[in-house]
Simulated scan of single mutants.
Amino acid sequence: MDVAISRVDRPMTDYAVTPHFRYDTVEDIEASRREKRPVMKTIELCEMRIAGEKNYIPTVPADSIWQVHSGQPITYAERFAEQYRNFKLGNSQAGEGTPLQELVPYGITQAQLSLCRALKIYSIEAVNSLEGIHLKALGVAANELKRMAGAWIADHSSVRSERSELEELRALVEKLQSEKTTAVHVAEEAIEDKIEASAFAAMDDRQLKTYIKERTGQTPMGNPSRETLLRMAEEA
């Protein structure tokens, strides 16, 4: 078990590892000892099919620890959360990345597709990540497949970059439109305030007192100054 984990944890992207969760029935040793008879239990396993490995398929319990981050244990079920969720729901489990069939316009042949499947290579990103012995496992097709995968990624990286720039421009336009709308509202409010202020300036003190009483229900007490009456009218 420890050897399997150490090999999987070599520098390798998750695109190169295709997980497959399944159930298995094994003996519960402790329960068998207590019961003095064979006691079986069902456990969840995670098979990891590594791109470029012909025969080696490390298999670990789904709830075993893959790594510890900041003191928090990460299980293999959490590492491959999407595939584990599909497993629990009874759905098909697919690896990460873009299907190799997308390389057909770049020249990949059916024979090469079959070779990749035989070597547990299921995505363009997995081909692109292959190095060393895993790349050599492709034999004479290694360089050609690597070239096609690199070309596909380069082409689609430029498309993603253009989409990102377009999204940024759209966000900028929305921001400017929002700022423009806000500025218009502020200007309209300022104009209304000026119109209202000019209307008050045209009133005499008696008219101001009448306006304040109509708006507040109370007549200004005493003999307030005109400045006070104007302020009260604006606040009414």
Rank of each mutant, 00 (worst) to 15 (best):
K41C: 14
K41V: 12
K41P: 01
K41A: 09
T42A: 04
T42V: 14
T42H: 01
T42P: 08
T42S: 10
T42Q: 13
T42I: 14
E44D: 15
E44C: 05
E44L: 04
E44W: 01
L45Q: 02
C46V: 07
C46K: 00
C46R: 00
C46P: 03
C46T: 04
C46L: 02
C46D: 01
E47Y: 00
E47G: 03
E47L: 05
E47A: 08
E47H: 04
E47W: 03
M48D: 06
M48E: 05
M48W: 00
R49I: 06
R49Q: 10
R49V: 05
R49H: 15
I50L: 09
I50E: 08
I50Y: 03
I50G: 02
I50Q: 02
A51W: 09
A51R: 00
G52M: 04
G52T: 06
G52W: 02
E53P: 01
E53N: 09
E53W: 14
K54F: 09
K54E: 15
K54I: 10
K54Y: 11
K54Q: 13
K54W: 09
N55K: 05
N55R: 12
N55E: 12
N55T: 12
N55G: 12
N55F: 15
Y56G: 02
Y56H: 09
Y56I: 02
Y56R: 11
Y56F: 14
I57P: 05
I57L: 04
I57R: 10
I57A: 04
P58M: 05
P58Y: 09
T59K: 01
T59M: 09
T59D: 03
T59I: 10
V60W: 00
V60M: 10
V60H: 02
V60P: 04
V60E: 01
V60C: 07
V60I: 14
V60D: 06
V60R: 06
P61A: 05
P61C: 05
P61T: 03
A62I: 03
A62W: 00
A62S: 10
A62V: 04
D63E: 13
D63H: 11
S64A: 12
S64K: 02
W66I: 03
W66F: 13
W66L: 10
W66Y: 14
W66A: 13
W66R: 13
Q67D: 03
Q67N: 08
Q67H: 11
V68M: 08
V68E: 12
V68T: 15
V68R: 10
S70A: 10
S70Y: 11
S70I: 00
S70Q: 10
S70F: 13
G71L: 05
G71Y: 08
Q72H: 14
Q72M: 12
Q72W: 00
P73S: 07
P73C: 06
P73N: 07
P73T: 11
P73L: 08
I74R: 11
I74P: 01
T75L: 09
T75A: 06
T75H: 06
T75E: 03
Y76K: 00
A77H: 02
A77G: 08
A77P: 06
A77V: 06
E78I: 11
E78F: 01
R79Q: 15
R79G: 04
R79F: 09
R79D: 03
F80A: 07
F80R: 04
F80H: 08
F80Y: 15
A81I: 07
A81N: 13
A81Y: 12
A81L: 09
E82Q: 10
E82F: 09
E82T: 08
E82L: 14
Q83Y: 04
Q83M: 07
Q83F: 02
Q83L: 07
Q83I: 00
